[in-house]
């Protein structure tokens, strides 16, 4: 009998100090996942805070946060929205009725209705991850501002990054335990 298999918890760290808002992640995602024209699964947010001349700018590459307490999974009436391997939140297209309860339930407005009728969003490129590859957005980032990995592995790059750098999640007050972290 071997050691019990440890469950993975996939997460992403996004370094706001490195991001130059080039949108390469957005384009890579569109190409990899055949995202329909006019839609995106990830996007860039440029935020400026403060009072002139003391300004602070932050660039973020945002996407579904693959929350550990995902309201979209709770709201889904058919089980189409579910937790998959590593806690990744996925939508089974074949089970989705397009009722849009999950769209309304998402604090991050990360979902959209695909022109074919089902609800769609970031999958952390789980199809690539299962093949041992990284998500398309991570692979293509020219400043290496995106890090993907298993948070339950203390030796993973993402675990070490989060242990050593200040970080935040978006809207922690929503109480959804997001798995996308922003390094600052």
């Amino acid at each position: 009998m071997g050691a019990p298999k440890r469950e993975k918890r996939y997460a992403m760290a996004m370094d706001t100090k490195k991001c130059v808002a080039c949108s390469a992640c957005v384009l890579a995602c569109k190409a990899e996942n055949q995202v329909p024209e006019g839609f995106c699964r990830d996007w860039i947010v440029e935020e400026v805070r403060g009072a002139y001349p003391n300004l602070k700018a932050e660039n973020r590459s945002e996407r579904c946060n693959h929350c550990s307490d995902a309201p979209c999974v709770d709201a889904c009436p058919t089980g189409a929205s579910h937790y998959a391997e590593g806690g990744v939140v996925l939508v089974t297209h074949d089970k989705c009725t397009g009722c849009k309860a999950c769209v309304a339930s998402c604090p991050y407005d990360a979902r959209y209705v695909h022109p074919e009728g089902y609800v769609d969003k970031c999958t952390f490129c789980l199809h690539r991850v299962k093949e041992g590859k990284l998500p398309a957005c991570v692979t293509v980032c020219p400043t290496s501002s995106l890090t993907f990995g298993d948070l339950n592995d203390p030796e993973s790059e993402i675990s070490k990054l989060l242990a050593s750098r200040d970080h935040k999640v978006l809207h922690p007050e929503a109480g959804t335990n997001p798995n996308v972290f922003f390094l600052s």
Partner: peptide, 10 residues
């Protein structure tokens, strides 16, 4: 700090 501007390409 006070939010001045948010730009998103979504």
């Amino acid at each position: 700090p006070e939010l001045i501007e948010v730009v998103s390409n979504r």
